[in-house]
């Protein structure tokens, strides 16, 4: 059966759906605009077909992102970065658990030496996972902790080392310089490291996430994203704009505060949730 006819009202409603999911007006206009020709030529039968085409359009954008780096080096070093409170430390706990379950030996590095009790927080995650952690005193040089972590990871023959960093706004020049230094020091200790630099993004974030991704990418060459807090009501639609512009893959999504609340990213599911 043929459903609702595509008219201005339908287009407005779909615009509302996309903007409300945080895709942003630009990406929304591009997605809908890209289908105007098909609408005009009557290639889309009804509103449902238009929705399906938009879903496919979103999936396609994710389909064009780069692949996350394979874990070939030993240790494979992952550096985790992002603005304050997005879920970096928690995500590291979940990721470590996920990798451990695959039989990999994991080690954590507590290079957030700034925030009160950040190392204690990561330590609790290390205990939950049952993996070793490298930490120093609060206020220590984060680069030194990162260096020590890679050194210990090499020495102990672990498979993956994951380094936590302090949350920082991408607009703070000195803190972004500090992050560059951590990145550089890791590379000095081990050639080719860090093999992954993951930006953690909070799904409740609006259009600012695009600036976050651009500026962290400029500073430390991101290899991928993890989108957290998708267990709430936010859809995380700004990730579509980021995927389109920076071609960065979403490696995982976070769906809760527990050890097993990390999921592989599924572009179809993600696109469907935007309309659901």
């Amino acid at each position: 059966a043929i459903g609702r006819k595509i008219d201005d009202e339908v287009l407005d409603e779909l615009e509302e759906v996309l903007v409300t999911a945080d895709l942003g007006v630009k990406t929304t206009a591009e997605l809908i605009g890209g289908l105007r020709g098909k609408v005009r030529r009557k290639e889309l039968a009804d509103a449902e077909a238009l929705k399906g085409a938009l879903r496919a359009g979103i999936e396609e954008i994710f389909g064009r992102t780069a692949a996350p780096p394979a874990m070939t080096a030993k240790p494979h070093v992952i550096m985790v970065v992002g603005v304050n409170g997005v879920g970096k430390t928690t995500t590291i706990g979940k990721l470590a658990s996920h990798l451990s379950a695959q039989g990999k030996k994991v080690m954590l590095g507590a290079a957030d030496t700034f925030r009160a009790a950040a190392a204690e927080q990561l330590e609790i995650w290390a205990q939950r996972v049952g993996c070793p952690i490298v930490r120093q005193k609060e206020g220590a040089d984060p680069s030194a902790v990162a260096y020590d972590t890679v050194e210990a990871a090499v020495g102990r023959g672990v498979d993956v080392a994951i380094i936590d960093t302090a949350g920082r706004l991408h607009t703070k020049v000195n803190l972004m310089d500090e992050l560059r230094k951590i990145h550089r020091v890791i590379g000095k200790k081990m050639d080719g490291a860090p093999h992954e630099v993951i930006l953690v993004l909070d799904a409740t974030t609006g259009q600012n996430a695009l600036n976050q991704a651009k500026m962290f990418n400029e500073a430390v060459q991101l290899t991928g994203l993890i989108l957290t807090k998708l267990d709430g009501t936010a859809k995380g639609g700004v990730a579509v704009a980021i995927a389109g512009e920076l071609k960065l893959p979403i490696c995982y999504v976070g769906v809760g505060e527990h050890l097993d609340d990390l999921r592989p990213f599924d572009a179809r599911e993600f696109a469907e949730a935007i309309f659901g």
Partner: peptide
């Protein structure tokens, strides 16, 4: 509330 929050605020 985080000033960076999007539509879900």
């Amino acid at each position: 509330a985080d000033a960076m929050t999007g539509q879900d605020a």
